[in-house]
Design a protein around this nucleic acid. Structure first.
Lengths: 347, 347
DNA sequence: ATGAAAGCGCTAACAC
DNA sequence: GTGTTAGCGCTTTCAT
């Protein structure tokens, strides 16, 4: 069954399509009786104008940016959305969000469907696809649809990137607990297919190797990115019958750290007295927790703003986009969740 | 400067627009030399096809739903998004999200811009506009674009609604702390322009009045919907020099409850020993907090699913939408953040 | 292998 | 007041 069009309505109402268009757009100069007849036809047929044919094809139309995030639950992305939305709005753009929920197929799908709806540009936090199927991104390049990335990708993609120095910041975070005197330090690593997770783990390793210290494999737990992941990993790591427990744990992100702190509490361990915890991202909540979280502050909002700005810049310039790779500063914020280990205090 | 079109490219490449269309769509039967020439022109001019003209106007195209939330930071909405996305995907739909961030103008704007992009239907968590300017919603009705609401509106809008019984659930939550023996109970109310906030406050009042008890005005604090709001309100409520402090606090939502718990901790008060705290929503994090939160469980994911299902149903039926008003069950989950008051224990 | 021309659903002159 | 018609940017037969 074909969609009802303006001519169907016109026919039913016994008028021309121009007249229908008139009442659709509230134009003056349509007799009241005619208007009523047309409106009746519209209602009866459930007619719905195709906006693409109305505006898009005629006038320029308003412009919109698409932001594709990895997890809709992560406040990290919420701040990025806010920033992007601000910058976009100031320039007359709108921002729509889609979430890939860590699924490459969903990411691909999201890009395709949004591109099909003529969004003007993309801000994408891409998944690190194993098979390196970046076809959807290449498709954008090929169609001259600009995009900026929020996380690195292995393929030497020649694109604009807005991120922080994850290796350096994770290294700094790890150094912090080492400097406090901790010996047994664990890292709750992020999702498997994530450049950020890899970079942060690399930063942790670097802190250790710089000091000629060893990071045992069992001290690296691949947890994930959510509160649940942190909770489960924490429950496991500090499970009954475990020995050589870590006295400090650095986490992939704040959500994982929050889950970990829950697990520690439920295991009867205290933060930071028994275990020091370090997060990453500095989500808003971090400072307001019962034990304010020591974490790496990431300028999420600024990242969102900058990404949108760079994108719009590309949109408005005729030149082929030059691939800027911006690394905004990120550094540790020490709060109450880290302290010297017991042994260091008593010994 | 007008946008580059397919004929510009054709002209520059010295071919017809049909040929350009051919290389654009990777059609076979184009001489390699021609293809190269066309591609060169495309690249040189940064040509970008208007997708609306390509698909939309020709084929049916893929369908998408828009979900408009009030605050992108609230995990409450994240779960709704997940649910809607699931249900939509199962039926071949996509879901895009926009956030009004508690701003009526942004909400209006979001609806307009999305409608202009031909989204097929809306799931909207509307703001309770003071001036009752629901024009953007009426515009949808007028254009036969179906939508379902996630929060009530004052105007007797004849639309589908998916929500829970907020009054009843808030009443139940309040009864819980009353039954535990608390006398001085405060409520951190939600944002001003919110039906949910009003309904929940009403539920609190009802619990009191049913028992012929009084809820003093100073025990109702208009906080907001975020962690920061809860923190600030908590810091204030339990500030130095305050007397007659509440021994239990019910909150507009879990985020506020989390902020409150942070404030209590920073004021040296313990949960639930000194103060019982009740949240609302049961966001995922609630169960994993150091002190697991007693809260009203709201079936967010199911709400998202249902909203999407009802919407798609309307989309696929020719009949005018019947306005269903579904109230999914919500009830209290008692965890560790509530306990009898000290006085009740000792007295 | 390439081009001319008819349409996709709608708006906007311009006639009548 | 209302209808005719020429586009909007593109795809798609159908010729050539």
């Amino acid at each position: 069954m074909k969609r009802t069009t303006i001519s169907d309505v016109a026919e039913r109402a016994g008028v021309s399509i121009a007249t229908v268009s008139g009442v659709l757009n509230g134009k003056t100069g349509v007799r009241e009786s005619t208007r009523a007849r047309v409106q009746a036809a519209i209602d009866a047929m459930g007619y719905r104008p195709v906006e693409a044919a109305r505006r898009r094809l005629q006038r320029p139309g308003e412009r919109t940016l698409a932001l594709i995030v990895k997890e809709i639950h992560n406040p990290y992305f919420a701040d990025i959305v806010i920033g992007a939305q601000e910058a976009a709005r100031e320039r007359g753009f709108h921002v729509v969000v889609m979430s890939s929920e860590q699924d490459v197929d969903l990411e691909r799908d999201a890009v395709r469907s949004l591109a099909a709806r003529d969004v003007d540009g993309f801000i994408i936090n891409p998944l690190l696809d194993d098979g390196a199927d970046l076809s959807h991104l290449f498709a954008l390049t090929h169609r001259n649809v600009p995009f900026v990335l929020l996380e690195g990708l292995r393929g030497i993609l020649q694109t604009t990137l807005v991120d922080v120095d994850n290796v350096g910041a994770a290294r700094e975070a790890t150094r912090h607990v080492i400097d406090l005197g901790h010996e047994r330090i664990a890292h709750l690593a992020g999702p498997e297919y994530s450049m950020h997770a890899a970079e942060r783990l690399e930063g942790v390793r670097r802190a250790f190797s710089e000091l000629r210290r060893d990071l045992p494999d069992r001290m690296v737990v691949h947890a994930g990115a959510s509160v649940e992941d942190g909770y489960r990993a924490g429950l496991d790591l500090f499970g009954p019958g475990r020995s050589g427990l870590p006295t400090a744990v650095t986490c992939y992100n704040d959500l994982v750290a929050i889950g970990l702190m829950g697990a520690l509490s439920h295991r009867g361990l205290r933060v930071p007295e028994d275990v020091s915890v370090v997060g990453y991202d500095d989500i808003r909540m971090a400072a307001y927790l019962p034990v304010p979280l020591t974490t790496v502050h990431v300028p999420k909002r600024d990242m969102g703003r900058l990404a949108a700005e760079l994108l719009i810049e590309q949109l408005d310039s005729a030149h082929p986009p030059r691939a800027e790779r911006v690394r905004l500063p990120a550094s540790l914020v020490v709060r109450a969740s880290t302290a010297p280990p017991r042994a260091a205090l008593t010994g």
